[in-house]
């Protein structure tokens, strides 16, 4: 075998070797990318789950607050309370039969 042919063979082997290195490198990068993507996706899902739970908790707290405000509003509008205020604080009375009542209608 001539020296030229030997060099050609050497270059060919080197090229083949480089190709394998690149191939493995790309595959490794791809593999790790998939792994990283998988981990990132899991972490993102986890984080999203925590955020959803937090929002659900916030919603529940708002519902509770709403119920509390409703209970206060309804208690304040209880007819026995309104009657007590009307009679004791405002000095109003129930009109007796036949007594005319003037109503102011605001339009």
């Amino acid at each position: 075998m001539t020296g030229k042919a030997k060099r050609k063979g050497k270059r060919k082997r080197k090229k083949k070797k480089n190709f394998f290195i690149w191939k493995y490198l790309i595959l490794t990068i791809l593999f790790f990318s998939i792994i990283l993507f998988y981990v990132w996706e899991r972490v993102a899902r986890l984080e999203a789950g925590y955020r959803i739970k937090e929002k659900v908790k916030q919603r529940d707290r708002l519902i509770e607050k709403n119920e509390l405000f409703l209970s206060e509003a309804v208690s304040l509008k209880a007819p026995q309370r309104l009657e007590r205020i009307a009679r004791e604080e405002l000095g109003l009375i129930v009109p007796t039969e036949g007594e005319s009542i003037r109503r102011i209608v605001v339009k």
Binding site: E64, E67, L68, L70, S71, V74, K77
Partner: peptide
């Protein structure tokens, strides 16, 4: 529709 029984936390 005036509330007579409700729930509170």
């Amino acid at each position: 529709k005036k509330e007579l029984a409700i729930n509170i936390a």
